[in-house]
Design a protein around this nucleic acid. Structure first.
Lengths: 224, 224
DNA sequence: GTCTATAGCTAGATAGAC
DNA sequence: GTCTATCTAGCTATAGAC
């Protein structure tokens, strides 16, 4: 313990400002000048800390992915049965998305905007690896649950897609979502409600009749 | 019936090219020059058909929203009980997203990128109105189902968010999704499988135990 | 580590010939 | 309806002083 005053380095200030801006208008939508103005530095100073705009963007995305990764692993490491760990992970993920208002949009962008950043720099490879690390851990949890018989046997990739769609998209939906709910997406009540709705949907689905036990499926293979 | 040859006007050719490009890299990520090159026209000719880049973008998004809107209304108008209409609409929506490879990404962008296009032009207002029209129709269907007791009583906005997340996000997930599934997102088998998975999840959820009938909920209000 | 100055390029949009 | 030429303004990135 040293001084109580927290000194935030320029690098972190740049990352903070860039995160806000990139999350709103994406990589191509933001110029280094806007970032510089937001931090209160000159454009050139940014290039002293990050060798290119792409590296700055990758650093921004990497930073929030590291948080997701670390909190995912922590949530899964505590233990408990599969359902306990699954629900705990969902809560943790959505709490993280709620705490970091830019996280949802940045994640969604990095998932569905391939062309923006297919780079080969260390920072960009780190982004790819971290995403795969998180998805790998959740995949193993789902597989364990299906083998143990507590989760219905479904396609793991499809469930992963559904989980992203249910959680990340919601917190990324911005003004559109806020208009639908009539309030900020990040109020404690709405966050709590979203967590409940997602878990309820994943647990029991939408249909109320209990007669429905199996769903008729297309003749599509069990593959894909 | 006149000639069998289909004459595609310049306007449509521009829209086609712009759709491909905008869906991949977004509004800010594409320049009018790239669009012009793709169509085989000069940049200036584009401005003869669309008075600005923003108007071109709005026209692109509006065109696919019109398709979604028209097919949604058609699917709901056929009739049948609530569950039949709901499943038919889900099938129709996902078939449309599968047929128009750019639709998912464009829709997702127009939903979560507020800052790109908050304009006041006629084209942009049309986009907003069409989105609301579709969501309104689905909302009424959900409400009817909940009142009739065939759907669990859930927050309509939350269900709408979940439906977008489960359907649109999947078809927008691009290279990331394709890497996860090991194939194009648009193969007939994978499309059929996605439709089945989404409907199965919405019907019954993920948990296999039938003991679970009600889910414990947070103490959050029934509002939001 | 921050600055000014600037290179080199591309952006969206307009003017006006044909 | 398409073109060339051009305007102004922006961009990423670098050079080099302090």
């Amino acid at each position: 313990m040293r001084a109580a005053v927290i000194e935030i380095g320029s690098r972190d200030k740049i990352l903070d400002a860039a995160e806000d801006l990139f999350s709103r208008r994406g990589f191509a939508g933001i110029g280094m000048r806007e970032v510089a103005d937001a931090v209160g530095l000159s454009k050139s100073s940014l290039f002293h800390h990050f060798s290119s705009k792409a590296e700055l963007y990758a650093a921004v995305v990497g930073r929030i992915l590291d948080i997701i990764d670390q909190r995912t692993m922590a949530a899964l490491a505590i233990g408990g049965d599969v359902l306990t760990r699954f629900d705990r992970w969902l809560d943790t993920l959505m709490d993280t998305l709620a705490e970091h208002h830019n996280a949802g949009r940045l994640l969604l962008r990095s998932l569905f905007e391939d062309d923006e950043l297919n780079g080969t720099s260390a920072e960009e490879r780190h982004v790819d690896e971290t995403i795969k690390h998180v998805f790998g851990a959740v995949s193993r949890l789902l597989q364990e649950g299906m083998q143990a018989g507590v989760l219905r046997k479904r396609s793991i990739p499809h469930v992963l897609q559904s989980l992203v769609g249910l959680t990340v998209y919601h917190f990324a939906s911005g003004e559109f979502g806020e208009e639908m709910f009539g309030q900020s997406l990040f109020t404690p009540q709405l966050v709590r409600h979203r967590k409940d709705e997602v878990k309820a949907l994943l647990h029991d689905g939408l249909m109320s009749g209990r007669a429905r036990v199996t769903t008729k499926r297309g003749k599509g293979g069990s593959e894909s």
